[in-house]
């Protein structure tokens, strides 16, 4: 029973989702919206579990004074402050802090997002440009015919996207565009077919209870 009920639930909701797609009746649409809302709510509880695990991990680090425990304080304090600021709807209006005004543009939550999350996030991704360049130097040496093709395609796409490319020849950006929209798209489509068929097979295995890894161990 402990394994059968979840499997039956998975089967019912899986089949319901497939059927409702092909039955665009208002009742079916309404049922879909209700189930979608349920799933969104249930997912929030999973988020709570994840946050709980993070808090536990960092508080244990602080308790045991593990190396770098001071940074765990930074994580916990910033998480608590951001959560409070968000839940209480703290806003910065006319030089004053106002509570319960939502999380709009003037909210402190959005100020945190724009001035902490955005700079750190975009700098981290921007920094990847350096690491990609270093990885490319090692990986792109034209040792084989295939590696040479990869190198040439990457070179022309990059050159076609910068002003110096169009300064060398106005045809270069067009060529880069052609690479992206013809051979690149053909390869992407081929890969996408494989991914799609794999995804459908895996979904069917989950719905029909053939794939049971998610049930975990135990009874």
């Amino acid at each position: 029973m402990q394994r059968q009920i979840p499997l039956i639930l998975c089967l019912i909701f899986g089949i319901f989702m497939i059927v409702q797609f092909f039955v665009p009746h208002p009742y079916s649409q309404r049922a879909y919206e209700v189930v979608l809302r349920w799933v969104r709510i249930i997912s929030i509880f999973a988020l709570v579990l994840g946050v709980g695990s993070l808090v536990l991990y960092h508080s244990n680090k602080i308790k045991r004074k593990v190396s770098g425990w001071g940074f765990s304080i930074v994580t916990l304090v910033s998480a608590i402050i951001t959560t409070l600021v968000g839940l209480l709807g703290v806003n910065w209006l006319d030089g004053k802090l106002v509570f319960f005004k939502g999380i709009g543009k003037s909210s402190v939550l959005q100020i945190f997002f724009q001035n902490i999350f955005v700079p750190v996030n975009s700098t981290m991704f921007a920094m990847l440009a350096f690491y990609m360049a270093s990885a490319a130097y090692r990986a792109f040496r034209a040792r084989t015919k295939e590696a040479t093709l990869l190198l040439i395609a990457a070179f022309f796409v990059m050159l076609g996207m910068v002003p110096i490319g169009s300064a060398i020849s106005p045809r270069l950006p067009e060529f880069a565009e052609w690479i992206l929209s013809v051979p690149n798209l053909a390869a992407k489509r081929g890969i996408l077919f494989g991914i799609a068929l794999g995804g459908i097979a895996t979904s069917l295995k989950i719905i029909l209870g053939i794939e049971r890894g998610w049930l975990g161990g135990g009874k």
């Binding site: 039956i8 998975c10 189930v35 349920w38 799933v39 719905i207």
Partner: peptide
């Protein structure tokens, strides 16, 4: 396992027609 079964069934069921259509 109950919420996991519900969410997985929903996701897998929603994925099949969406993947057939889009991919």
């Amino acid at each position: 396992r109950l919420p996991m079964g519900l969410v997985l069934g929903f996701g897998a069921g929603a994925a099949i027609p969406a993947v057939i259509q889009a991919s």
